[in-house]
């Protein structure tokens, strides 16, 4: 597979603060690349550099072979960008905003009209076409911004937290749309804080404290030795009194970490910690074990473990 986006030691400083440090990775054409990381880790800054809005301090990136340092104007023709905060014209209607951006990209007459209808249809905003965009609710604003970013049929779309603040049904619709676009060969670069969305991505990059920590397919990340070091296992237990069970489990000998994961408890423990040990630990507090099984780590487990490792390494250094 060809890498349509390629970053090489991309770095950006604001004054003395380094917002993005030596980030290198590649994104395959047609993939849905999920870019994750805590608040302030540098996700939006990376996207802005890729879209040609910010000059990299050092390093470079290529989109479809064009360097963001030298050819950002050429790149801009073939990308769509949906910014994290709403940045369309509040005193223009949904349709007028689309018409303006369509014209900027050089769409005219029939083709402009057709593309406006299509993108309104796809993002489900046709019913609001005459409404001033400033008066739309948060979720509808997101949909308009999405419609705007794909209006000119770009090959790459950058979506900075497209699902922040939108309802579950709309969220599902949006992901359906992303899958469809990806099937048509469009590359999607998406940031999100939702783990279920991360699981849906074909590829994941995780950035922490301005540095890229891992990059790969979700399944690959879960197999990483750093996440499951030799001698440790990932387990899942459930109980009727889950909160008491959690605190008991955390204290059990052999358990390294335990967190609530939906209806059950995710446990990282030393090899040899089995159903018998788990039941014993809970019985001590008068709680019964309902089910117990070995599992693969979730993406959340992956990020939490990696982050913890990194912090430990820092503390040691």
């Amino acid at each position: 597979m060809s890498e349509i986006i390629k970053l090489d030691k991309l770095t950006r400083k604001f004054g003395s603060m380094t917002a993005v440090k030596d980030v290198s990775f590649g994104v395959e054409k047609g993939s849905i690349f999920g870019f994750l990381g805590p608040n302030g880790s540098g996700k939006s800054t990376v996207i802005r550099m890729l879209c040609g809005l910010l000059e990299p301090t050092s390093g470079d990136a290529w989109l479809d072979g064009a360097s963001v340092r030298e050819n950002s104007e050429r790149i801009k023709r073939n990308i769509g960008y949906m910014s994290q905060s709403f940045s369309l014209y509040r005193d223009l209607t949904v349709e007028e905003n689309l018409a303006f951006y369509g014209r900027i990209y050089g769409l005219r007459r029939e083709r402009l009209r057709k593309r406006i209808e299509e993108s309104m249809e796809l993002s489900g905003i046709t019913s609001k076409r005459k409404q001033l965009s400033g008066t739309l609710s948060g979720g509808w604003k997101q949909r308009l911004a999405l419609a705007c970013s794909m209006l000119h049929e770009p090959g790459i779309i950058f979506l900075d937290e497209p699902t922040a603040g939108i309802d579950p049904v709309a969220r599902r619709d949006l992901w359906e749309l992303l899958f469809q676009l990806s099937k048509e060969g469009v590359t999607l670069f998406v940031t999100t804080h939702y783990m279920d969305e991360a699981e849906r991505c074909t590829h994941i990059g995780y950035i922490f404290l301005s540095e890229l920590m891992v990059c790969g397919k979700p399944a690959e990340l879960k197999m990483m030795p750093e996440v499951t070091p030799a001698g440790t296992v990932w387990l899942e237990a459930s109980s009727d009194r889950i909160t008491q069970a959690l605190s008991l489990m955390k204290k059990a000998p052999g358990v390294m970490d335990a967190t609530i994961f939906g209806e059950s408890i995710h446990i990282r423990a030393r090899e040899g910690f089995g159903e018998r040990e788990a039941a014993l630990a809970l019985e001590a507090g008068g709680v019964s074990l309902e089910s117990f099984r070995a599992v693969k780590p979730s993406l959340e487990d992956v990020f939490v473990s990696l982050t913890r490792e990194r912090l430990k390494a820092r503390g040691a250094a």
């Binding site: 809005l53 910014s83 951006y101 900027i104």
Partner: peptide, 13 residues
Amino acid sequence: ENGTIETLLATPL
């Protein structure tokens, strides 16, 4: 000030 420059600058204007 309104932040609209962000989307505008991402276009080949």
